[in-house]
Each structure stands twice: as C-alpha cells, then as structure tokens.
Design a protein around this nucleic acid. Structure first.
Lengths: 337, 337
DNA sequence: GTGAAAGCGCTAACAG
DNA sequence: CTGTTAGCGCTTTCAC
C-alpha cells in the first residue's frame, strides 16, 4: 500500500507538499501540484484514515444508538441519518441496544475511545446521569427520547400533544371506554404520551380504570396478547390508544380472529404512520412522526456541533406531530353528518 | 484525555508494561499488573482506537453495502450482521447505495483507505471487474447478489429454485397465464429467478408473451402501476410472480381498488416472507429467504477471513429457499379436494 | 519480567 | 512556495 512518502519520492518532493495537495491547501505551485497528482494516480494512492484520524483527532464517523434496525421507526431514522452523513463524507456506525442498558453503555464508549466523533442516542436506558460523563469526550445528541435535565441538543416530537390529539379524536368520535398501551415504561416518550392521553380523558370527564393501562407492549404479537386480555374483561374498552402501528396492527388482526369488529366494537389508534397503516383493513388511524426530518436535522445539528465544538448546552428542537384519521377509529354513522 | 504514557507515569512503570496489561499479555508480574490496573482506573483510561488502528493495521470495523435500510430484506440483514459483529467487538458501518453505482464505488474505497477491515456487499452495481481490484486491500464478501467469476466468499440463496418453485405452484393451482416481475435488471438474483420461472413454464408447455415481463419493479407503488398495466391488457395475466412482498402487496391493494378478486381472478406470489405477507388480505403466498441466517453466516465468514487472511478464493454458501403457500394464490375449490 | 526506542502514516509548526 | 522535524498514541522488537 502506497504511503504519502512513496508519493513524495516519486514526485521528487516532500511529504509536506503532498499533504498540502491532498488537503487542497494553498501555497503550492500549480506545477508541483500536477506532479503530485500524477504520482498519486500512478501509485493508486489514497490517504490512510487511521493515520489521519490519529493526527487530526477526528474519525469522521458518527455512531447512532437505536433499539434495533427492524423497528421501522428506527430503520427510517438510520436511513435518513446515513443519507445526510454521506453528504458530509461521514460514516455511520449502527449500534443496536436490543433494549440492554449495558450495550447502550458499551456503545457510548466508542466516544471515549475516540472511534467516533459523536453519538446520536435514541434511547436512554441508563438514565441521563450515566450518560452525561461521556460528554467530556464529544458531542451527544438526544433524538426522539429526551430528558428534562440533559444539557445537550435534543430533537424530538411533542409526544404529549400526540397522546392528547389521538385520544381527543377518539372521544370526539363518541368512544368513552378508552384503554392505553405503551412501550418502554422508563421512557419519557411513553410518559409524555400518557400525560397527553390522561389530559384528554380528564377534559372529557372520563374515568380511567387501572386495568386499561398496558405497558411494555412493543410488537405485533404483544398487540395480539393485549387485545385478548382486553376482550376478557368484564367491561372491555371500546377504544384503545397504542404506542405503535405494529401493535395496532396486531390488535386489529386478532380482533378479526375473535370476531370483534373494528371500529364498530373497538376503535384502534396507532402511532408512527408506517406503511402498514394503509395496508391493513381497516386502514389504521395514526399519528404521523416526521422521522425523516428528525434524521436530517439530527445529522445537521451534529455537524454543526462538531464544527463549533460547543455542545454542552441544552437546545430543544421540537418537531410537529399530526393526527391522521383513517378507518380504524371512524364510526361510519359519524361520517354521514 | 489520558494516554498510555499518563498511566505509565502514575504507575511508575513503562508504556510497554502498561500495553502488556491492556492486551492481556503474559510476562508481567501480578504485582505490577495491579499497579497498572489501579492507575488506569484512577485516570479513567481507555486506549485510543485511532492509534491502535494505525499501529495494528486494523480497525475492527466492517462495512456493509446495501441499497437502503428501509427495504425490509436489507434492514433485517443489517440487524443480524450487527448482532454478530458486536459479539466479536466489531463495529458495523452502513453504506446505502440508493441504487447508485458511483456510491457503491465510493463505499468500496473505505477498504482502500483502511477505514474498515472488510466489506460485505449485497449489490454489484459496477460489475465484478470493477470490484475485484479492491480485493488487494482486504476481504470482500458477496451476499445475496452473486457473480459467476467472483473469486471471493459468496453467500446467497438458490434464486433459480425460488423462481421455479413459486411458478410451479401457480401452474399446479391451475393458472396458465403467468406474468413475471423483477427488480434490478442487471442483477444475477433477478436473472436466476427468471430462469427458474421460465423453466417451470417450459416444463408445463406454457407460452410467455413478452409483455408479461416487467422489470425494474421495486416498491409498493410500482406494484400498483404494474397491476394497472396488466389489467389493461387485452389478454390479462391470471397470475403473477413478483420479486418482493412489497410489490405483491401493492398489486393486491390496487386489485381491491379495481375490483379484481385475488386469488380468483389473479393469483399473486411475493418474495421474502416479510411481516406484511400475514397482514394483507388475502395473506400473501411467498418464498421465504433465510436473511437472518445469511447475516450471521456472512459475519462469521468475514471474521474467519480476517483471521486467516485468505479471502481471494471462490467459496459458495447456498442457503435454502422455501415456498410458503398462503391465500393469495390458493384457489378455494382446489383446497376442497 | 521490564523498559528504551523505533515506527505505523499523517499534518502542522517553523524555518528558510 | 517548499522542506525539515516533531509528534498524534499505541505496540513491538530487542536488549538487559
């Protein structure tokens, strides 16, 4: 493998001059520049990234921590992050926690070992106190997940509003026995959605029985399970707010199997606005999250923080959530009027 | 940031000894070892990866080149790759070509610049001739996509069989006007499937009109478009083999809109066995691809190639494909008997 | 067992 | 404009 020295020798110049050419620096005559370029081409030379990283103290790699790629929300996030990163000639390392706090911590260490220039986190399994010390080694951006104390850039959606608007919609449709389903209990995302949910119920003077609350519901299968549990209740809910389209789809699928009509006997609202919402029958009412925008913004903010080196300041970017009404929550007779 | 030198000073020892402790090398007394460990803890020391990479000529990073993360097939592939990589303490860089040959080449350069220790490719947009020279800089593994000339490890499915078995199934169900749909024209995957498809038709003595062949069909929307085109034909096909479940879903969705009954008037077979196949109505007949296994195997093979440093040899791992019959291709009256 | 010193490939003072 | 030199942080001879 050719090194800068080989190029220098072949061109009959010094390493410095070659380096200047590589980095498009001024103060190198056109003549010598051509000499260098020629030598580089002849040797098929490309600079060694490890050497550059060591010397420049930066790797041009960003790590993104997500639960798992196959969750469509995070998959889409990774996709949009990578697109922007590649425009800046940065690479993206994917880090899947698989919901393990230990793995989250291991991945944060990439910052400490200087394998990456920054970390974008979408989970906070260890709590902010555990994450904060890593700030000493480079920028961390909180995406989707958030924390009241965190002194870093945060990009997320108004989850409280999301929970509120979806629930308000159900109430407006005439439903009054509404259940709540969420994923990670320790997540502020879930917490905020639940607050919004409760706010809507409160405003409507509706009561929320304890058993109408389901937590740690993540997958299609989980959705099925919850539906069965709901239907076994003496007083079953007539509507349910879920934390993800996948869960909503599971519920609808299981409803069909049990002969429960959606939305007549049970209204279902999803979250995320994934492709599946338009494929299910009935099509799923959901809350759209601007994931792509979040990815773009996150990477842009990361690039800026790396450049300015000021990243230990709280900075909140709030992205809008919008309710998308489809068939899984729309009572036919309400449409007539 | 503490360096090895700081640790050495604090422990009152040399860098060499500290290095030995870091790397668990023998020939260091238990006593000094404890001294070093203590100093390391006190300083919160972690070795700098760039320095290690430069010195050891390896980064412990693997790049994976895929079209895009949001394609569920590749998303799942990335997910399983990352899981195995992390067990080996390797990181995974995602590289999305977005179907651009130039980007594919750019990403291959990661190998040349030594930013990664190996590359796993799932596309071959530039043809093997263009890829081969990069072998000089490190291992390349071909996954899913394959090439007859490539002198590297290849892990893929028997696509020819996949095309054959799905088509045979349609024929056995009594369909005889069968259309073919595939994605990338220049892909051996598509090519092999088409061969299998044609073989089944040939065996059954069925004729294949040119207009029954659709290429460059990738998305849900593409599926809808193709369906409309098919239905506009004077002699419309009564069955269709598609290259992906997404496309199949698009077709079924559009069929419903147009009042075309599936499978009575049109049988549809997908490919990949994604979650969506069980959510659509009717549920989609498809060909299961062991993506997870492919990911695991690919990373295991990569680790082995990196260790042995022998990777310029052709080596084919063929994974089995299985037909999964569901409702989108099953004529009710055929089930009775 | 332990340490001094060289060097991985690159960039940036600094001097000319 | 160009080159000499030092050094980023680590591992590995090689000597003791």
């Amino acid at each position: 493998m050719a090194t800068i020295e080989d190029v220098a020798k072949l061109a009959g110049l010094s390493k410095t001059t070659v380096s200047r050419v590589i980095n498009n620096q001024p103060y190198v005559s056109e003549e010598k520049k051509q000499l260098v370029l020629e030598a580089m081409k002849q040797l098929g030379y490309v600079p060694n990234s490890s050497a550059r990283s060591l010397r420049n103290q930066k790797t041009e790699i960003i790590a993104v921590i997500i639960p798992r790629v196959m969750n469509p929300f995070f998959g889409q996030f990774v996709e949009s992050l990578e697109i922007v990163a590649s425009q800046y000639h940065y690479q993206l390392i994917v880090c899947q926690t698989l919901y393990s706090a230990k793995k989250e911590l291991d991945y944060l260490n990439l910052l400490k070992t200087k394998q990456v220039d920054g970390v974008i986190m979408t989970t906070l399994l260890n709590g902010w106190e555990a994450v904060e010390p890593f700030l000493e080694y480079g920028p961390i951006i909180l995406c989707n997940e958030f924390d009241e104390q965190a002194n870093v850039p945060m990009i997320h959606m108004d989850q409280n509003y999301g929970g509120y608007v979806a629930t308000k919609h159900l109430i407006d449709q005439g439903y009054n026995k509404i259940a709540f389903c969420c994923g990670n209990v320790n997540s502020n995302v879930s917490r905020a959605r639940e607050e919004g949910f409760r706010k809507a119920l409160r405003e409507a003077g509706l009561y929320l029985p304890e058993q109408y609350i389901f937590r740690n519901v993540f997958t299609f299968e989980d959705g099925k399970d919850v539906l069965r549990k709901m239907m076994e209740m003496v007083e079953a809910p007539t509507a349910v707010f879920t934390g993800s389209d996948e869960v909503a789809a599971g519920m609808i699928s299981e409803s069909k199997r049990l002969g429960v009509r959606v939305p007549e006997e049970l209204a279902v609202v999803g979250f995320d606005n994934q492709a599946i919402t338009e494929l299910m029958e009935p099509m799923i009412t959901t809350v759209n999250q601007p994931v792509k925008e979040m990815g773009h913004l996150a990477m842009e903010v990361m690039m800026e923080k790396i450049k300015t080196r000021r990243y230990k300041e709280r900075e909140v970017h709030l992205l809008p959530l919008t309710l998308i009404v489809r068939d899984s929550s729309k009572l036919a007779n309400y449409n007539v009027y």
